[in-house]
Amino acid sequence: MCQLLLGCTTMALVAHSAGFSATYGTYCMFVWCFCFAVTLVIFTLDVTRLHGCMPISWDNFTVAFAMLATLMYVTASVVYPVYFLRSECPSEGCEVRNYRIAVTVCSSVCCFAYGAEVFITRAKPGHVVGYMATVSGLLKVVQAFIACIIFGALANDSEYNRHIPTQYCVVVYSLCFAVTVVVVALTVSGRTSSLRFPFDRFVVIYTFLAVLLYLSAAVVWPIFSFDKKYGTPGRPEDCPRGKCPWDSKLVIAVFTAANLVLYFTDLVYSQRIRFVSHSSA
Rank of each mutant, 00 (worst) to 15 (best):
V96R: 12
R191E: 04
V181I: 12
F84S: 06
C94F: 07
A123L: 12
T192P: 01
A113W: 03
Y168G: 07
T104N: 04
I146N: 09
V118N: 04
K124T: 11
A64T: 12
S108G: 15
Q143Y: 01
V182K: 02
E117Y: 13
K124H: 15
L175N: 02
T166H: 00
C89Q: 10
S174E: 03
L139P: 00
V105L: 05
T70I: 02
N156A: 12
F84C: 07
A147T: 11
A144N: 02
R86K: 14
V105G: 02
F177S: 10
R100M: 05
A69V: 03
E92G: 08
L154Q: 05
V129Y: 09
A144T: 08
D59R: 08
I101W: 14
D157P: 00
P165Y: 06
Y73I: 00
G115P: 05
P90R: 09
V171F: 14
V74N: 04
G152M: 08
V96T: 15
A123C: 11
A123D: 13
T134S: 15
A133K: 13
C148I: 07
G137E: 05
Q167V: 11
C169Q: 01
F177T: 09
V142W: 06
H163F: 15
Y114H: 14
A178S: 05
L138E: 13
R122L: 06
V184L: 12
L175M: 10
N98P: 01
V188G: 05
A113P: 05
M67C: 12
L139Y: 04
K140Y: 13
D59H: 11
Y99F: 14
A153D: 02
G137Q: 06
N98T: 12
S189K: 09
V141M: 09
T104M: 10
R191T: 13
C169R: 02
V109R: 07
Y173E: 00
Y114V: 06
E159P: 00
V188S: 04
T192L: 04
Y131W: 13
Y131P: 02
P90A: 09
E159D: 10
G115W: 08
P81G: 03
G115A: 13
H127R: 14
V109F: 15
V79P: 00
E159G: 03
H127C: 11
R191V: 06
H127Q: 15
